[in-house]
Design a protein around this nucleic acid. Structure first.
Lengths: 246, 246
DNA sequence: CGGGACTTTGAGCAAATTCAACCATTGTGG
DNA sequence: CCACAATGGTTGAATTTGCTCAAAGTCCCG
């Protein structure tokens, strides 16, 4: 399956009237394109397509040719890998400003699925690579982003290899909360767009264990649940404690 | 602790007589410097120090200022992170040709320790960064290496989050074997320079479980142990099967 | 208001850990 | 040269954490 299956994409330049220009993009500061000057941004925009994907649709599939790279501008995305017998490991969640498209040998190394309706900037890989050569700052930025992702992946290895269920959930909530803050959302009610099953597959646990752990944290007053999608981190200090500081 | 503690380093150019020139470096093809022309290599060499580290010495420590970056030219290195209570997660093993020095906010994000005696090329971070600006190919290469490390980290997340003990050990052996082959070593007797405890901390298991799993694989004829440091992958197909192909 | 997807809770189970003892290899000092 | 300490590895028994299987309970959206 290619990105084509996930929804229409239209050339940015063709959509001048309706599209959101980069100047109005409120997450540009977080994105890889933050380092570009207005003139350079113009050139990037020329090779950009807007794309919208409904919830639960696949954006890219593992082992597909990596023809496109993406920048998430709205919504939430999950990245995952499958074992042959169906076991799933979610390797990350993406939010606005995050870059999508790590590839090896020109193939995607994970699948990406929209959790909520998602909007993306889409680039042809070859075209974007051309721009990287022209704008060293952009390449440098991409190196920084990749190094950051690597650091996050190593933290997740610690979590998966050495933390208890409770520590994993506490770390997860704090992590999401920090990322929400980066995006200017107050940390108070934290949004969990993903299901408990997604959280389980991200933390290397089962749904039941995640649910039980949430219940335990709720009963001990550390968090307050408001429906399934919203949490208040009532006692952040206790959470930090429980997460066994990485 | 800084790299200073781990052993002496001397300027390459000062050691022209005794040092190994890049031309004679048999792992240059695997290294980040593989993309440089002879003239460029000369410039890199000018900012390179040779360094030797005894086994069990720390090369860099997590949270230390990341003043130096390294290229492993001989020996084996382990990278690890610690939780406050001492639990340890090894995030990777490095062999000749591997790059060392991922940093965030100018601090190392993990500790690195020599497993065997290790030799390295050492660069001042600021100087190497200057060279990256001068040689775009080098920066591109570093991006490729970092992306590769990220992919490997994601595979390790699958292993840690979703694989059984036996699958982890099988994947580990196959992985090491592939890396040995990349370095021109026949896969037949595979060298394990790290202890069982290191393997355990890499695979998110205990020493006892690693030992039991090795024993089980040995008894079923899949591997043949020759002392603690050497394994023959007698039935590679069975190992592939057991590793539940990532 | 109903139905399907998601979540929670419970009871029993199993994989891996913990705790403990023993074995093997190596290097050291008497 | 050998005794023996130290490090690392293996094996066993008991325990535990998290998983599996099963059954309710909620939420949300049409």
């Amino acid at each position: 399956m290619g990105p084509r299956d996930a929804g229409g994409a239209r050339r940015r330049s063709d959509a001048a009237a309706g599209g959101t220009p980069c100047a109005a993009c409120d997450i540009r500061g977080l994105s890889f394109c933050a380092v570009l000057s207005p003139a350079e941004l113009e050139q990037l925009r020329a090779i950009t397509s807007d794309m919208r994907v409904e919830a639960h649709r696949t954006i890219v599939s593992e082992t597909d040719p990596a023809d496109h790279l993406f920048n998430v501008t709205g919504g939430a995305v999950k990245l995952y890998k499958l074992l042959m017998d169906g076991r799933r490991q979610i390797t990350g969640f993406l939010f606005p400003g995050d870059f999508l498209g790590v590839a090896l040998n020109d193939r995607y190394v994970y699948s990406a699925e929209a959790i909520t309706p998602v909007s993306l900037c889409r680039y042809e890989r070859t075209q974007l690579e051309g721009l990287l050569d022209a704008f060293p700052a952009l390449e440098k930025r991409l190196l920084g982003i990749t190094a950051n992702d690597l650091v996050a992946a190593q933290d997740q290895m610690v979590l998966l290899g050495r933390k208890t269920a409770q520590e994993r959930v506490a770390s997860f909530l704090l992590n999401l909360s920090r990322r929400a803050e980066d995006r200017g959302h107050g940390p108070d009610p934290l949004h969990l767009p993903m299901t408990r099953a997604d959280i389980a597959d991200y933390l290397g646990l089962t749904v039941e264990t995640v649910s039980r752990t949430f219940s335990r944290l709720r009963k001990s007053g550390v968090i307050v649940l408001d429906g399934n999608e919203w949490v208040r981190l009532a006692d952040r200090a206790a959470l930090e404690e429980l997460s066994e500081g990485e």
